[in-house]
Simulated assay, not measured.
Amino acid sequence: MPLGHHDLAHEFPEFKERIHELKMNDAHFKKLFEEYDQATTKIEALEKQESPVADETMEDLKKQRLVLKDQLYAMLKG
């Protein structure tokens, strides 16, 4: 069951301008941002499917997204 949209701007609204700035000027941040966005899109699509998804698959995707989120947050704060 979907709990809400997890794009980075919704996760860290206080960093909205910084997110945009880093996406435009930092290639590493942009790459991580795109990976985070892809993982979020995939998770949300799987949550909307009517067919079952293996718990391990969903857990692995969510762990991947969390690692990316942590890395992005560190860059936003820095």
Rank of each mutant, 00 (worst) to 15 (best):
M1E: 09
M1I: 13
M1A: 15
L3M: 12
G4N: 09
G4I: 06
G4A: 05
G4P: 03
H6A: 12
H6G: 12
D7C: 09
D7W: 07
L8H: 03
A9I: 11
H10Q: 11
H10M: 15
H10G: 10
F12G: 01
P13S: 05
E14W: 02
E14I: 09
K16G: 00
E17H: 06
E17A: 04
E17N: 10
E17Q: 11
E17W: 05
R18A: 00
R18G: 00
I19L: 01
I19P: 00
H20T: 07
H20Y: 08
E21R: 05
E21D: 05
L22Y: 03
L22D: 00
N25G: 09
N25E: 05
H28D: 15
H28Y: 13
F29C: 06
F29M: 01
K30A: 15
K31H: 14
K31F: 13
K31W: 09
K31V: 08
L32D: 01
L32V: 08
L32Y: 07
F33V: 08
F33S: 02
E34F: 14
E35G: 03
E35V: 07
E35K: 07
Y36Q: 06
D37W: 10
A39M: 03
A39H: 08
T40L: 05
T41L: 12
T41M: 13
K42F: 07
I43Y: 02
A45W: 07
A45Q: 14
E47T: 12
K48Q: 14
K48D: 15
Q49L: 13
Q49G: 07
Q49C: 14
E50C: 07
S51R: 15
P52H: 14
P52L: 12
P52M: 11
P52E: 04
A54T: 09
A54I: 02
D55L: 14
E56P: 01
E56L: 10
T57P: 06
E59A: 11
D60F: 09
L61E: 03
Q64H: 09
R65N: 01
R65C: 01
R65F: 04
R65H: 04
L66S: 13
L68R: 02
L68P: 00
K69E: 06
K69G: 03
D70F: 09
Q71L: 13
L72T: 02
L72G: 02
L72Y: 03
Y73P: 03
Y73L: 14
A74C: 10
M75L: 11
M75R: 05
L76R: 01
L76C: 06
K77G: 02
